[in-house]
Write a protein that binds this DNA or RNA. Sequence first.
DNA 1: GAAATGACTCAAC
DNA 2: CGTTGAGCCATTT
Length: 122
Amino acid sequence: MLIYNRIYNIVRQIPYGKVATYGQVAELAGLLGKARLVGYALYRVDRADDDIPWHRVINAKGEISYSQVRHGADYLQQSRLEDEGIEFSPEGKIRLSQYRWRPPTELLEKLSTFLESSTGDH
DNA sequence: GAAATGACTCAAC
DNA sequence: CGTTGAGCCATTT
């Protein structure tokens, strides 16, 4: 649970009109290499929390991750992103180089501090 | 508590 | 490009 809160916390930081990859969110949350957990965390929350802009999280290929378990929420995701001014290529891909969110240095420092106090170790 | 699952990612063919 | 396989680990059964 605590670990998921970290993920949600990061996702909440993604600004309007920008996207982040699962791996990126994982890394920011102090979960480098554990991108799957991000997807799993978002699956648990999906429409329950309007607080979390889950639609701004996509995979490393610059595509929306489609899955049967989402019951069409994946298509909703695309339309929401388009509403934010993000353009999809004919193949349904996003230009990550253009739309990827670059977290401010301030946030990075803040997060590392948070992680330190969180582990309680050194 | 072992086995299965999952909105992922990367490297190697 | 596409496919494959291995790594990843909290949550669920």
